[in-house]
Design a protein around this nucleic acid. Sequence first.
DNA 1: AATAATCATGTAATCGATTACACGAAAGTA
DNA 2: TACTTTCGTGTAATCGATTACATGATTATT
Lengths: 342, 342
Amino acid sequence: MSEKVTIYDIAEKLNITAATVSRALNNNPKIKESTRELVIKTAASMNYKQNKLALALKSGRSNNIGVIVPRIDSNFFASVIRGIEEELHPHGYQVIICQTHESKKRENENLYTLIDAQVDGILMSVTDVTDENDAAFQYVLQKNVPLIFFDRSKHIEGVSSVTINDFRGGYLTTKHLINEGCRKIAHFSGDQSLEIFKNRFLGYKQALLDHGIDFKEEYVIYTKSAVEAGKEAVDKLLQLETPPDAIFSASDFAALGAIQELKERNISIPKEFCVAGFSNEPFTKFMELSITSVDQSPLEMGKMSARVFLEQVDKTETIKIEKKVVLAPELHIRKSSSRSTF
Amino acid sequence: MSEKVTIYDIAEKLNITAATVSRALNNNPKIKESTRELVIKTAASMNYKQNKLALALKSGRSNNIGVIVPRIDSNFFASVIRGIEEELHPHGYQVIICQTHESKKRENENLYTLIDAQVDGILMSVTDVTDENDAAFQYVLQKNVPLIFFDRSKHIEGVSSVTINDFRGGYLTTKHLINEGCRKIAHFSGDQSLEIFKNRFLGYKQALLDHGIDFKEEYVIYTKSAVEAGKEAVDKLLQLETPPDAIFSASDFAALGAIQELKERNISIPKEFCVAGFSNEPFTKFMELSITSVDQSPLEMGKMSARVFLEQVDKTETIKIEKKVVLAPELHIRKSSSRSTF
DNA sequence: AATAATCATGTAATCGATTACACGAAAGTA
DNA sequence: TACTTTCGTGTAATCGATTACATGATTATT
């Protein structure tokens, strides 16, 4: 059923060769106009479809690109992927999705699998245990496949990246908390091997410094990005001799946990305590007590990553392009930290 | 850099033919054990990687499967995709993502593109304007590519589906609202061309009937799945002569909008008015006034769809398998509708 | 009219792997 | 010893499209 129609079938029907058919379909200028028209018409009538696999084998290009993320079911990553897909679809690329679940092994496996599948490029966000010296990365670069990091990036020669200015995100948020009158600002950070968390942390520190507030090590807590972790962290903070009066959390989920715990202890937000998160997850604006958060414009990040890929994909080797795009974070001030506005 | 190593290179080095190398690597029993070992060792030392495209061209199987969803940046679809990826990864399949944005044209385009790319199967959730008679579906079936619908399904011969029992979801929720003392229950539904909305609606109706409550047409409002739509719908409902005292919304977002509007009008939830949604979006349980909702176990749905695909992929033609898997919905009762429990 | 230039198409190799068929060598049988 | 199996490999076609090179047919040039 539904015999596959090849250029040979068309050639046979027209008593010409497959080469001519191929040329006609590819608008090769050497083909007589009348032949071209005939071929195109016949191809359409026979319902011919080009075999992408044959083309890929011959050309070495699959028209697929690989996207590797820690997990897909987070609003942030899903939105980035949406952006990538939308930008690349018009160019005829298909998007292959891989997840790492923060496992280095899975990450390497995915890299090798994608290269073996001959993808034309790889866009990825690294795990929190990624080692930039892993051979897998060199393997990708050796094959001359464009590699682009988004959001969670590593410094590797020849690799482009699209990130947001996390330092600025941390700085803006902390400054905002200071403006609201907070002076004892705690920080929930994440794995320090990830630049994003290091930079949010540094932005936080700098804001304190610029406003004459002493940095206190005990105010920094390393949490996972989870509601429960936020609760536990608040519990720890409130046991300090001088408990804080605000939290800048590098994770929205931890911020939510913090708010839940504070409420349970009848601490009034934002009057007695301000909280701000990071990522602008959908729920932050849905809450009755909406949560201040930093937007990372994931859709834009995805589109931008795709554009960087497109720029690099046709450049012929040798010239290793290393482009670093840094997007601006946008602080969304909401009730959880607005003593004045609301 | 990094010359591609083929079986011909291995053959040349060992003074044998590529055929023998291929057989050795594929554990063909006709190959002498010593030869096999030698080939495998040499292949490893030369860092040989099988060219998947050549294999795909020869075998007609790409080891890719396509997934088509309205959009990827919704928790539900992202979770389904996660389930699909996790189930299929161990079997060596890669997942290609496509979005339709509820456009029939995009949907058809995606179907054709995936078939042209020779995917081994297609798992999809249709748009709200999908026409099951579109030639694209027959095209897929003609090519003998397994097609599986998940969640949003259509009746097409030869197509399997994995859905939840939406009727039961609607029934359970409505019954719960009745149990909480509500008698004037409104319903927010979606596009009736989608089975899921029709069935939730029918479940709602049946529950009313079974409990001796009259069904009122004016209590049914067709909304989009959006916060704003929920607000507008409440506005309409409250203008009725006999306004309702509860809403069963087929969308969590519309339910959220309803709650926001009711609060603005100082109507106390759940005391004066109960609200329940559908989908169990993350925010429903994060809210201070958490929202009752029906869980569709998207992860499980994804895994199940993948399993159905795996069952069908190797069956040799002719026997059209049409499997219908129906998962059980799970009602999560929360504050927005709990007069007794909380 | 003879020669050169141009045009349109055909021939055959190539991308990398698989596999039906063929064949020589070794082993088994009578 | 002569004949049949069995075993291990080689030969060559195949999957479907592209393309360098070759070739024959026109057309242009002088």
